[in-house]
Structure formats: structure tokens, C-alpha cells
Simulated assay, not measured.
Amino acid sequence: MATGLKWRLAAAPTAGSTRIETGLRPAGSGHREASRPCSSVHTGTLCGEATTNIVTMYRSDTSGGTDGRLVNTGGAMRSIDYDTEQHQDYARGRALTQQQLQVWISAFAEVLPERRPLVGLDVGSGTGRFTPALAGAFGPVTGVEPSVRMREIAQTQPQHPGVRYLAGTAEDMPVPSDSADYALMFLSWHHVQDKVRAAQELTRVLRPGGRLLLRANFSDHHPRPWWLGHFPRGYEVDASLFQPLHEVIEMFTSIGWRVASFGTVTEPSSGTCGDMLERLRLRTLSFFAQLSPDDLEVGFRRLEQAVAADPDAPSPVFAEPLLTLELR
């Protein structure tokens, strides 16, 4: 296993394996994953030069280049109250297959220290999609989640003895200082209202050398799911919810963090295009809350027409960013 600070050169492609490729591609480069059945998801090759550039750029101490003030910037989105919206359908709409879950756990293992156990935080744990699997793979985990309803659903799922769920937010976590070895934020960073405070709180709760696994989208390094383009201004609207990558990195490096790695993970297909359409109809993605009723109607009509041509086709896969930061 590679250490958390290095990416291992991939082996020859094998069917059903994890794809982790490092390196940055500028927005608009046209890169996207080709449509393919989930049985042919391959291990990627490394984009070594690009990766070296981004990691080296931010490994140096950049705090001297600012006046020490952090500013909340980046994407703006309509706030979602999960106690009144989405909680009933979230677990079903965002469910992961066992194969998909294992791909993510393997990707996290690549960027975490090899020692076990590790004490983890699942920040924005929602309905507990990852929390029990994190505990099984790495050690005890605390899921921190502000929504009462989402925590209640998480607690009805099969439990792991190393898991507990607490009320809290990224800005205010009810755990001691220097108490965790890593924190996972899986598609929760864009929900954080005060990102500066959250970065400072993550600095408080993690031990020196702790890792933040930030599975977030970035306005300039944004996945392009196959269905998104069917909605009016779909890519533009979705990208507007997120900060550019450099803003996130600078926010953390200015208070004592460094970039350990940046890469992408391609999870196996979620099933057929017809299956994916049924899940999208549940509207458990933040994107849908940003659209007008007219745009929703137009988008779903276009998507239904496209899927009707071949509903049993495998849902195409795409690469998803994973930024790992290390607390000095």
C-alpha cells in the first residue's frame, strides 16, 4: 500500500478495479470518462507532472504571502434543510453498491497512514453512507451531522460497534481537540455556511499529521455526469455551487495545512441508465434545489427521452475529485 503522501503507479488495467488518477486538468479541457459498463472500469495511469506541480506548489509555507485574514468566498447555493427536505429519500437516492463503497474505502486507504486503528470523523455523515465502512476499515468513527432526521435514519441502519453519531456541524464539532487522525467530508463542504470557521475547527480537532479527505467538487475541476447536460445550463448551475480548487487550498494552507495529494476516483457504474433516472427523480442532489420548476420540468423531460432510447444501457461513469490535506 502506498503511504498517504505518495500515489502508487497503477498496475495494468483489470476489470472492476479502482480508477485513481492524479493530476489536474483545466476546466473545459474536454476530458471525461467514456461511457462503459461497470465491469470495465480500469485502474488509471498517473499524470505525474501535473500532480507534482500542484502538490509542490502548496507544500511550501504560504502563510507569509497573505495578511493572515481568511475570507469566506466561493459558490453560493440555496440552503437545504434536511429535516424538512430530502431526508426520507436520501438513503435510497444516494445509495452506494458494495462495490462502489469498496472503491472509495480503497481510495481513502491510499491517502491515510498505514497504521491501525485510526480515529476518524465523518463530517456531514448524513444517513451514514460511509460511517460504518470507515469504522470497519480504519477504526472508530464519529459521524457529525446537524440534521436530526438524517441522524435518526443513520441509526436505523446496520451498526458497527466503533460508530457513534453526534449532533454538530463542521463549524462546531462536539469532540475534543487533537482527538482524530482524519476527517472525511464527502460532498458536504459546499453545504458549510462559514468555511473559514470550519477550516479552523478541523485544525482544532485533528492531531498534527492528521488528514482531511475532501471529496468535493470544484468550480474549475468539476465532474461531468452524463445526465447533467440535459438540464438547462446544467453544468453552469452545478459548478456555481462550488469554490475553485485554489481557493480551498489557500484557505487551508494559510493556517498550517499542506496538500498531500489531489486525484480522481472513478467508481463503478450505478446500474442502468433507467435505474439512474429513477434515483434522480427523488431529487436528493443539491443541484435540483437550485433549479426553477420550469427548468426541472424541461430537464427531466429531456432526460426521460434520452433514457427511453436505451434504458438498459449501463449508466456511464465519470471521475470524481479527491483532495487530501495534511495538518502540519
Score class of each variant (00 low, 15 high):
residue 2 A to V: 14
residue 4 G to L: 07
residue 7 W to F: 12
residue 8 R to E: 12
residue 10 A to C: 11
residue 10 A to Q: 06
residue 13 P to G: 10
residue 20 I to T: 01
residue 22 T to G: 08
residue 33 E to A: 11
residue 36 R to A: 14
residue 37 P to M: 03
residue 38 C to M: 00
residue 40 S to Q: 08
residue 43 T to G: 09
residue 48 G to D: 06
residue 52 T to Y: 14
residue 52 T to C: 08
residue 55 V to P: 02
residue 60 S to F: 02
residue 64 G to H: 07
residue 66 T to S: 11
residue 74 G to I: 03
residue 77 M to V: 08
residue 79 S to M: 14
residue 85 E to G: 02
residue 99 Q to M: 06
residue 104 W to Q: 07
residue 105 I to M: 12
residue 106 S to W: 03
residue 112 L to G: 00
residue 115 R to Q: 14
residue 116 R to E: 15
residue 118 L to E: 05
residue 125 S to N: 15
residue 126 G to H: 11
residue 129 R to H: 10
residue 131 T to D: 10
residue 131 T to W: 01
residue 132 P to F: 10
residue 136 G to Y: 06
residue 140 P to A: 07
residue 143 G to H: 11
residue 144 V to W: 06
residue 146 P to I: 10
residue 155 Q to M: 14
residue 157 Q to K: 15
residue 159 Q to R: 10
residue 160 H to M: 14
residue 161 P to R: 02
residue 168 G to I: 15
residue 171 E to A: 06
residue 179 S to I: 07
residue 179 S to K: 02
residue 184 L to K: 05
residue 186 F to W: 11
residue 189 W to V: 07
residue 189 W to A: 08
residue 193 Q to K: 05
residue 194 D to V: 04
residue 196 V to T: 15
residue 202 L to H: 07
residue 205 V to D: 11
residue 206 L to T: 08
residue 207 R to S: 10
residue 211 R to P: 00
residue 212 L to G: 10
residue 214 L to F: 09
residue 220 D to M: 07
residue 223 P to Q: 00
residue 224 R to D: 07
residue 226 W to I: 07
residue 230 H to W: 05
residue 231 F to M: 03
residue 232 P to G: 08
residue 233 R to N: 15
residue 235 Y to H: 04
residue 237 V to S: 01
residue 249 I to K: 01
residue 255 I to A: 01
residue 257 W to M: 13
residue 261 S to T: 12
residue 266 T to R: 05
residue 269 S to R: 00
residue 269 S to N: 01
residue 274 G to K: 01
residue 285 L to C: 09
residue 291 L to D: 04
residue 292 S to R: 00
residue 298 V to T: 15
residue 298 V to M: 09
residue 304 E to G: 14
residue 305 Q to D: 13
residue 307 V to K: 00
residue 308 A to N: 06
residue 311 P to F: 04
residue 314 P to W: 04
residue 316 P to I: 10
residue 317 V to N: 09
residue 321 P to R: 11
residue 326 E to L: 11
residue 328 R to V: 15
